[in-house]
């Protein structure tokens, strides 16, 4: 392989990594919100993402959103529709199940309910993914848009040697993901809701004394958290085929990103997710395609073993 060809492959992987990474970043922000506010590890996060993908898929097919927004943009509108739908699903799951072992009720349990939460959400994950198999079928589906099969060409650069193709569909998805993260950061920083969420995260007991309904804050955090990840899933749905078991792979992707960014930090989660996207795409330069996910798992293990507080996080206890 010539140097120019390697440079081309590298830049190609780099751009693909940044675009996928931006969407991973959005997904990680959702997971991080739940952990940051509730201190709950939600194992079912990947399965809510999968639900988001199917909501986008059906919204795209059913409502014929393309009539309103044109065939090119319709998949992205469908992805945004996944947000409110999964938000409501998240509220229900929190109210009926998660709230019983978290928050004030969790602190009465052994090791503050962490194991109960982890195992409860594992059960929820099993029900969602296997129930999904029944409802959605096991055949992989995807959302097709003209954009996902067209690319911009950058170059030729460096004489005629290097040119990079940037997928248009992925670019639009990445832009929407970044805008969604910015919007969320503004919401958390500026609004009353954001303040109450941050207060509940910082010190739940003091927040209660300040008249903040911590239980409601937790419910909203769970709802927003799964909804944000579901939008990320919806954005991915237009460039990757998926099936009901897809969530599990992304649980590790998301946790790798969130741990890398420092558990509980929203900005850290976004950059963590971005990094994982880069790792995934750049790994294809040296590893066979099938081992992309193995590369992520190995990176995840290395991060938790060597730097559990994350690259951007403060030192925290590993418990």
């Amino acid at each position: 392989m010539s140097a120019a060809q390697f440079a081309e492959n590298f830049l190609q992987a780099l751009s693909a990594g940044l675009l996928t990474g931006a969407v991973y970043g959005l997904m990680c922000v959702g997971l991080s919100l739940i952990f940051g506010v509730m201190r709950v590890i939600n194992f079912a996060q990947g399965d809510f993402m999968m639900l988001g993908m199917y909501v986008a898929y059906y919204a795209f097919g059913l409502f014929g959103a393309h009539l309103l927004f044109g065939a090119a943009l319709a998949p992205y509108v469908a992805a945004l529709i996944a947000g409110p739908v999964i938000f409501i699903a998240g509220l229900l799951v929190h109210k009926l199940l998660v709230s019983r072992v978290s928050g004030m009720r969790g602190s009465a349990l052994e090791s503050e309910g962490h194991y109960a939460q982890l195992i409860l959400t594992l059960g929820i994950a099993l029900v969602i993914q296997n129930g999904g198999l029944w409802v959605f079928g096991s055949a992989p589906v995807s959302i097709t848009t003209p954009l996902s099969s067209s690319a911009w060409e950058i170059g030729p650069l460096h004489g005629d040697l290097i040119s990079i193709f940037v997928n248009q569909g992925q670019t639009v998805a990445a832009v929407i993901a970044v805008l969604a993260v910015l919007g969320f950061v503004l919401l958390m920083g500026r609004s009353r809701l954001g303040k109450s969420l941050r207060a509940a995260a910082d010190n739940p007991e003091a927040a209660i004394y300040m008249g903040i309904d911590v239980d409601r804050a937790h419910r909203l955090a769970f709802g927003f958290g799964v909804a944000i990840t579901a939008i990320g899933g919806g954005l991915l749905a237009s460039s990757y085929p998926f099936q009901p078991y897809v969530g599990l792979e992304y649980v590790i992707v998301m946790y790798a990103g969130v741990v890398l960014g420092g558990l509980g930090s929203v900005a850290g989660a976004f950059f963590g997710g971005l990094t994982i996207g880069l790792v995934q795409q750049l790994s294809t330069l040296v590893l066979p395609n099938q081992l992309q996910n193995t590369a992520i798992f190995v990176v995840f293990l290395v991060i938790v073993l060597l730097r559990p507080q994350g690259l951007f996080g403060r030192a925290a206890r590993r418990t």
Binding site: G123, V127, Q129, N130, L133, W134
Partner: peptide, 11 residues
């Protein structure tokens, strides 16, 4: 997916 559902509900 009934097996997974059974285990999920059980836990």
């Amino acid at each position: 997916g009934i097996q997974g559902v059974v285990y999920g509900i059980a836990i």
